[in-house]
């Protein structure tokens, strides 16, 4: 099983564990840009792609602040929502963006999302943070996976 398949299974498992509609991952590339890496469904891909194109959105804000960003309704007017991003990710309403930190350095952002608006209470935010910690460990294991890294075109 390659890194993509492992990540696919882990994201799906985390969304299930968290009880949300989907999970999406953006990681910093070699040029310190957040890049859309994967999502559990089309809505997640749209969310990440819209943020990557706009250079804005909850994941971007989470990366900039190094903290959690909880959005009740992405379609709401700024500053509570991100209407420009929402316009290209219509199915997505609520988003919880969790910064992924490894050794005090940001490596990416994990987004959980739902298709209905919702509040993210403190207990839910804490659970999200723990899942972020877990994903960092998974990414470290994948990074140590020599076979995946050695052949970038292979996946």
């Amino acid at each position: 099983m390659d890194a993509s398949s492992v990540l696919e299974n882990v994201l799906t498992g985390m969304a299930e564990l968290f009880g949300v509609d989907g999970a999406a991952l953006m990681l910093l590339d070699g040029h310190d840009r957040l890049r859309a890496v994967g999502a559990t469904d089309d809505a997640g891909v749209m969310l990440e792609s819209a943020q990557e194109r706009a250079g804005d959105g909850p994941a971007m804000e989470s990366a900039a602040r190094g903290g959690l960003v909880a959005i009740r309704d992405l379609h709401a007017s700024s500053p509570t929502g991100f209407p420009d991003v929402a316009a290209h990710a219509l199915p997505v309403r609520a988003v919880l963006s969790i910064p992924l930190i490894e050794d005090s350095e940001l490596i990416g952002v994990l987004d959980f999302y739902t298709r209905a608006g919702r509040d993210w209470d403190s207990a839910t935010r804490q659970t999200g943070s723990r899942l972020g910690e877990l994903l960092v460990i998974v990414l470290q294991v994948l990074a140590e996976s020599r076979t995946d890294i050695a052949s970038p075109g292979q996946c």
Partner: peptide, 23 residues
């Protein structure tokens, strides 16, 4: 993005680039 067995979609090129950075 490539579609997995379910609805999951992963961009293997972006993933490998980021993992290389992590390594």
């Amino acid at each position: 993005f490539t579609r997995g067995y379910g609805m999951t979609q992963i961009d293997p090129e972006a993933l490998v680039a980021s993992l290389r950075r992590l390594q």
